[in-house]
């Protein structure tokens, strides 16, 4: 795996990487980017670049995550000194810090109140809106969180992060239709995201694991995600899972009522031969990934371990 750096951290940070990132705190904290000299000199001797603040922000998040609250506080103070109390992102980061320190629901409630107050003053602060949803989520008030998120996406319908979160919340309460809709919005914003395709497929599959139209949609979305990324383990996993369910359904319907499905549905189901072929291909690909990962071959170790184990289990099931 590529060395994680603080300037452009990967979108998904597993715990060891987060720890590795937050351990970079001491040297960064020891060398402040702003100069301590008086004003005219400070302009000349500053080492400040936009990157240094991006690094600070990511370091802040990593420290919060790994429980290094003291470093987080220092970074936050430094950022506040530089950008001022009222900066939108600083307000949000203050919120994150408070949330991380909150011991119980009481404290979270108080933070929630504070967010409400901020949003009354400035309803356009989307960072705080998202934090508010996060607090509602951690308080277990899923319905409220969903309502808050729908307001958010109503006002900012091009926010992929918010749509994805909304989809997850809907899926959590079993509202599959809404979850799929939200995930499709993510797809509209990021049409080439293979993970979004796989997520849509997963939602289709979970919504009704036995119906032919849902399964064929799931199969197609998984196929698209694999088409976009040839080494996407989750795509192959889903492909195999769905194909195995589809094969009996398709052979049934092709014998008895092949006509009916194509008539009342605008999406014709895939034909049996290619589904079988896909099943085979996915199986061989999964087997290859599992084998290569097991042998620790260079270039094959970037897979998530849990996913590889799941794939192995799926292959062994027969």
């Amino acid at each position: 795996m590529a060395q994680a750096n603080l300037l452009s951290p990967p979108s998904q940070i597993p715990p060891p990487v987060a720890l590795q990132l937050s351990q970079k705190a001491p040297p960064i904290l020891a060398a402040p980017p702003t100069s301590s000299l008086p004003w005219p000199l400070s302009l000349l001797f500053t080492r400040e670049t936009p990157e240094s603040w991006a690094i600070h922000e990511n370091l802040f998040l990593a420290s919060i995550r790994t429980g290094d609250d003291a470093s987080a506080r220092q970074i936050l103070d430094r950022l506040t000194a530089r950008f001022g109390e009222d900066n939108e992102r600083i307000v949000t980061m203050h919120g994150i810090y408070e949330e991380a320190l909150a011991k119980d629901d009481k404290a979270l409630e108080r933070i929630f109140e504070a967010y409400e107050k901020i949003l009354r003053d400035d309803p356009t602060n989307f960072g705080v809106r998202k934090r508010r949803v996060a607090v509602l989520k951690s308080l277990g008030r899923t319905a409220d969180a969903i309502t808050a998120l729908t307001v958010l996406v109503e006002n900012s319908p091009i926010d992929a992060e918010a749509w994805a979160e909304l989809s997850e919340l809907y899926a959590g309460v079993g509202a599959w239709g809404q979850a799929i809709f939200s995930m499709e919005e993510v797809l509209l914003i990021m049409p080439n995201s293979w993970s979004a395709h796989a997520q849509v497929a997963t939602l289709h599959y979970l919504s009704s694991p036995t119906s032919l139209p849902a399964l064929s949609l799931a199969l197609r979305h998984f196929a698209r995600s694999v088409e976009l990324n040839e080494y996407y383990l989750r795509g192959y996993y889903g492909l195999k899972l769905v194909a195995e369910k589809l094969i009996p359904l398709l052979s049934d319907s092709s014998s008895s009522n092949a006509k009916r499905n194509t008539d009342d549905d605008d999406v014709p189901p895939p034909n049996l031969a290619s589904v079988k072929k896909l099943d085979e291909l996915a199986t061989s690909k999964l087997a290859e990934i599992v084998r290569q990962y097991g042998s620790g071959k260079k270039g094959w170790t970037g897979f998530d371990e849990a996913e590889v184990i799941a794939a192995r289990e799926l292959l062994d099931r027969k």
Binding site: L219, R220, E227, L281
Partner: peptide
């Protein structure tokens, strides 16, 4: 629809 016939495309690509 880009997903139309994706399964055949994928089979052709992977084989």
């Amino acid at each position: 629809w880009i997903l139309d016939g994706v399964e055949d495309r994928l089979v052709a690509k992977l084989t």
